[in-house]
Nucleic acid binder design. Structure first.
Lengths: 250, 250
DNA sequence: TCTCTTGTTCCGGAGAGTAGAATAACGATC
DNA sequence: GATCGTTATTCTACTCTCCGGAACAAGAGA
């Protein structure tokens, strides 16, 4: 029998036009300052100016993008908030996890976050940021690799589908061993694996029948030393276990 | 000289296809449970099934929508979170306002929120919900009327452009008078105006050169009585003044 | 004021989207 | 477990909208 296979392209034909229009929408989160001009977007995506302009008009009509009438540039509109709110309502995990994240943040003093496997990448859903001026912050909603960072490794280890296609070559072999270790210990650590100068710990959240979820803490290497990180482990595991229990008990 | 005119349709031609695809995306926040089927969406929007399916495929490819492989229905994906996060980053107001909202919530015990004028409607950006089991909650990101509710009236009164086209007929005349009153008092009240059984207060947040913003509190009529509401007014005005000051001082 | 850049509009050819039905997959009911 | 009703998905020829390129307008900066 065939289980859910994450990371597979949906079957069937898609709408080329719609995809390009969505590319325009999704160009905004990637931009430095959130305001973008037509030519700028056209350059980024390799599209014709007139095309981009037509798409922007559609996006503005739908309230997903707003036009700054002063400089004639465009930015994301408040309607996007409705989308995110509805998305979060779907993910029961988030509501339930918030107190645990806060607890973990306060216990460690570092940023605590929640991530989820989506296809062959991971996405951070929420975080409670460290109060320290120097802190790590996850890019919420952005697809990040599964094969690097503590969150990624936890999600990869927890999935029924190991994502074998990701574990290739010599590096894949090493990672495979590491995943076994993660499964044994019940948590993963990353010391500058994905973002240099950033250390993190993560543990799986168990819940049957749903996509894999991970909870963890992350901070700057200068403060989040290997030694200090060790002291976070029991707190992390407690939080993960409690969250798993709440979620499986409905 | 012509000032920014909110609520005007952007000029020029839009992409019909893109708009329909976005309709499909925006159908999700409106649905009861966030999961929708192809036929269901087609029915809601009056589109052909095959068309909806093609749009959904595009949305899935971009990560804005995910397909539940069990029941073959669709839901909003985590990529929408990236959009909202980027949108919020744009709106400096939100970050700054959070402590004031929390303060207002704790002082009143009711839900405190922040709304913004977008075209000829208002959109709630953030809120800090009352801790009470019975509470009011705003639909974040959803377009709501300007001509009803305390937030709407404040935004209408504060705008340079009065939105005259909204103030028509006998009702319009009464509202016009009320807006003058709002400008004089510096706040607006609503007793079940928009949502029956819900009372609210709101005050304008002043900041030059930006869209109008309002801060306010809202709660169930049984608790948020006219009498008790009066005691919130000074707290509200203090919060609004403080927030205005912070924002104009950069 | 002039120039350069950027946003916006226009239009006919071309190609992608559309409708509608056929098929496949699913789930409920007996 | 077989049948039926429902829903998702695929297919294809036609058609209508989108595309591109250039022309135009509007600002920004010098």
């Amino acid at each position: 029998m065939r289980v859910e296979s994450p990371g597979e392209r949906p079957s069937g034909r898609s709408s080329e036009v719609a995809e390009r229009a969505l590319d325009v929408l999704l160009a905004f989160p990637d931009s430095q300052d959130g305001e973008l001009g037509v030519t700028q977007i056209a350059g980024m995506l390799g599209l014709e100016k007139s095309r981009v302009h037509r798409f922007l008009t559609a996006l503005v009509n739908k309230g997903l993008v707003v036009r700054n009438p002063n400089n004639h540039r465009y930015a994301l509109g408040p309607r996007t908030l409705a989308l995110a709110q509805a998305a979060l309502r779907q993910m029961d995990v988030v509501d339930v996890a918030l107190p645990y994240l806060e607890q973990l943040r306060d216990a460690s003093g570092e940023t605590a976050g929640l991530a989820m496997r989506v296809g062959n990448s991971r996405v951070h859903l929420v975080q409670r940021e460290s109060h320290n001026e120097l802190r790590h912050r996850f890019d919420i909603g952005a697809p990040l690799p599964l094969i690097a960072g503590s969150f990624g490794k936890v999600l990869l280890a927890a999935s029924d589908l190991p994502g074998d296609e990701l574990l290739v070559g010599e590096q894949g072999e090493a990672l495979r061993k590491e995943l076994d270790e993660v499964r044994r210990c019940g948590f993963a650590e990353s010391y500058g694996e994905r973002v240099p100068g950033t250390h993190s710990l993560a543990a799986p959240v168990r819940r049957s029948g749903h996509a894999a979820v991970a909870i963890g803490v992350s901070g700057p290497a200068t403060r989040f030393t290997e030694e200090r990180g060790k002291t976070f482990i029991p707190k992390l595991l407690t939080a993960a276990a409690a969250l798993s229990e709440v979620l499986t008990a409905h």
